[in-house]
Amino acid sequence: MKGETIARAWAVTRSDGLVLGFTDHDRALEFGGMTFRPDSGLSAKAVVQGSGLSVDNSEAVGALSDSAITELDLMAGRWDSADVQLWDVDWSDPENRSLVFRGHLGEISRSGGSFRAELRGLSEPLNRAQGRVYHPRCSADLGDGQCRFNLDAPGYSALGIVDQVDGQRVRLRQIDRHDARWFERGQLIVLSGAAAGLRGQIKHDLLLTGMQREVELWAELGLQPAPGDRVKLTAGCDKRAETCRMKFLNYLNFRGFPHLPPEDWLIAPQVNR
C-alpha cells in the first residue's frame, strides 16, 4: 500500500449484534459487505502492539452523533466491551488492506459532546490468573456451564412492572409467590423502555404489601427504567452448599469444597492430629 492512499477503517460490533463501520477517510469506504462511514468523527491514536503477553492498547476518540454513537447508548452501557477490528486500507483499492488490530472497547469516558474509549487487544485475558479456586463456597456462577441450573425453571424468576425508581432502589408491582430475599444476589433485567437490555445485581430484596416488592441494586443502572417498564428478576445464590442443596436442588453440580478445613485449623499447633 502507498502511504499517501492509506486510511483507517473500523468495524465495531456491540453485544446486541449492532455493527457499525467508521473511517477517517473523507469519503465512505466499502469492503467485506460493510460501509464505513466518514461522518462519525471517529479517530484513533497509534496502536501499540507488543510481543509476549503485554497488552496491546490504543484509544479511540470521537464526537457523539445521533446517527452513530449516542450519549444515551454510552450511558446505558451498550458499547461496553464491544468487539473492534481496525484495518489499514488503501482507499483507492479497498481490497488492498491489512488487519492491524482486533480486540474490544475498554473504559469509556465522556466529556461534553465527545467520548474517549480504550482499545484492549486479544492478549489482555492472558494476563489474568487462571485455574480453579479451592474454597468452601462454589466457584461457578449460577446458571453457567458448570452450575447447569436452569434459571427459567418455574419459581426461580419473576416478571414485574416498575412502579417507582429512586437511585439504586426500584419498587415493583405484580410480583408474588416469592419469599423476601429470594432474589438477593440475583439480577434485575429490564425488558422494555429506553433501558431495555440493561442488567443490575440485586443487593437487597424486600417484600412489601400485596404484590409489591422493592429491590436495591449494588449500583445504579446506566439508564434508569421508567414507571411502567417491564422487568425480570432472577433468583440469587450465595454460593453456599446448603443453599445449593435446599434452594436450587442442584447439589450434584456444586463446585465448592465445603469440607475443607478452615484457615484457623491450618495454623493451629500440630497437636493430637
Rank of each mutant, 00 (worst) to 15 (best):
E118F: 05
L119C: 06
L119M: 12
L119V: 05
R120T: 12
R120K: 13
G121Q: 02
G121H: 01
G121S: 06
G121N: 03
G121F: 00
L122R: 14
L122Q: 14
L122N: 14
L122Y: 12
S123V: 08
S123F: 05
E124Y: 04
P125K: 03
P125F: 05
P125E: 09
L126F: 08
N127Q: 13
N127T: 14
A129M: 11
Q130Y: 09
Q130P: 03
Q130S: 15
V133L: 15
V133C: 12
Y134W: 10
Y134Q: 07
Y134H: 02
Y134I: 12
H135G: 00
H135F: 10
H135W: 11
P136R: 04
P136Y: 01
P136V: 03
P136K: 05
P136W: 02
R137Y: 10
R137I: 05
R137F: 09
C138V: 08
C138Q: 06
C138F: 01
S139G: 12
S139I: 08
S139L: 10
S139H: 07
A140Y: 13
D141T: 14
D141S: 14
D141M: 09
L142V: 04
L142M: 09
L142E: 04
G143L: 06
G143F: 01
G143R: 12
G143N: 11
D144S: 05
D144G: 04
G145I: 03
Q146D: 15
Q146N: 13
F149V: 11
F149N: 09
N150A: 09
N150M: 03
N150P: 04
L151C: 10
L151V: 13
L151P: 03
D152S: 15
D152H: 08
A153E: 15
A153Y: 14
P154H: 12
G155P: 07
Y156P: 00
Y156Q: 12
S157G: 10
S157R: 15
L159F: 15
L159S: 11
L159M: 13
L159H: 14
G160I: 02
G160L: 02
G160M: 03
I161E: 13
I161V: 15
V162N: 02
V162K: 02
V162E: 08
D163M: 03
Q164N: 14
Q168P: 04
Q168A: 09
R169L: 06
R169H: 06
V170T: 04
V170H: 04
V170G: 01
R171I: 11
L172C: 00
L172S: 00
L172K: 00
L172P: 00
R173P: 00
R173F: 01
Q174W: 00
Q174L: 09
I175N: 01
D176W: 07
D176A: 14
D176T: 15
D176V: 12
R177D: 14
R177W: 04
R177A: 13
R177F: 11
H178N: 12
H178R: 14
D179Y: 06
A180T: 14
A180P: 07
A180Q: 14
A180I: 10
R181T: 09
R181E: 11
W182L: 06
W182G: 06
F183H: 02
E184G: 01
E184Y: 00
G186K: 00
G186A: 05
G186C: 05
Q187S: 03
Q187L: 08
Q187H: 11
Q187R: 10
I189E: 12
I189W: 06
I189Q: 10
V190R: 01
L191R: 08
L191W: 02
L191Q: 10
L191C: 07
L191V: 01
S192T: 13
S192D: 08
S192G: 05
S192K: 03
